[in-house]
């Protein structure tokens, strides 16, 4: 049975341990945005032994490339992008302390294994609900790679940002569980 939680970042091992695939979570606090190009740069920095633009310990990364804000708004529409494109980078970031990722769509086995090994979770946000999700973001500040435009790294402050646990720290996958239940063979 799916449970509902309200969690504040940074996430602890205890926060992650209680989450199961299918649980609904309302996130509060700081989360960071990064897409394809920013992920490549973050991993390059780690390879070079350099400091990242934000602390990965307990952090959550949101895979999003928002629309530009209208005057007076902190951000435009901001729903998740498809996550598999970040699969080759995520395990490295998880090993360095990343506790949560928000996106949409399937992850590969390496990401799921890293979630189990280092206690992390992959959250799904509703793809295509950019207007609704953008309203839960109260402030946004570009902290790195401004030249990447929509792909820049942004620091977001979110209030009751709604997500669902897709991959938990126990190797479960909501996409598999959900589909098996309704598939007609």
């Amino acid at each position: 049975m799916s449970k509902t939680y309200h969690l504040t970042t940074p996430l602890s091992d205890e926060d992650v341990a209680k989450l199961e695939s299918g649980d609904i979570v309302y996130l509060n606090g700081t989360i960071y945005t990064a897409r394809d190009a920013a992920h490549k740069r973050l991993v390059d920095l780690l390879d070079e032994g350099k400091e990242l633009p934000f602390d990965l310990k307990g952090a959550i990364i949101y895979f999003v490339g928002p629309t530009p804000p209208k005057p007076g708004d902190p951000i435009g529409s901001a729903g998740p992008t498809t996550s598999y494109r970040m699969d080759s980078y995520s395990p490295r970031l998880i090993a360095e302390g990343l506790k949560g990722m928000i996106g949409k769509g399937k992850r590969n086995q390496e990401v799921k294994d890293a979630c189990v090994k280092y206690k992390a979770v992959y959250f799904g946000a509703t793809g295509g609900a950019g207007a609704l999700l953008g309203k839960q973001i109260k402030s946004a500040e570009v902290i790195a790679y401004e030249e990447l435009g929509p792909e820049a790294v942004r620091k977001l402050e979110v209030v009751d940002f709604p997500v669902t646990v897709v991959n938990d720290a126990y190797g479960r996958d909501l996409y598999q569980i959900g589909r098996e239940q309704y598939e007609v063979k």
């Binding site: 950019g130 709604p162 669902t164």
Partner: peptide
């Protein structure tokens, strides 16, 4: 038939409502 999918569909209909009444893009991927 799935309560989870039904809930997400509800979110999407709500999103469409917010988008049109506030003239915000439905999705960030325009």
């Amino acid at each position: 038939k799935s309560p989870v999918s039904k809930e997400v569909l509800k979110q999407l209909l709500e999103n469409a409502q917010i988008a049109s009444s506030e003239a915000r893009p439905l999705c960030q991927d325009t």
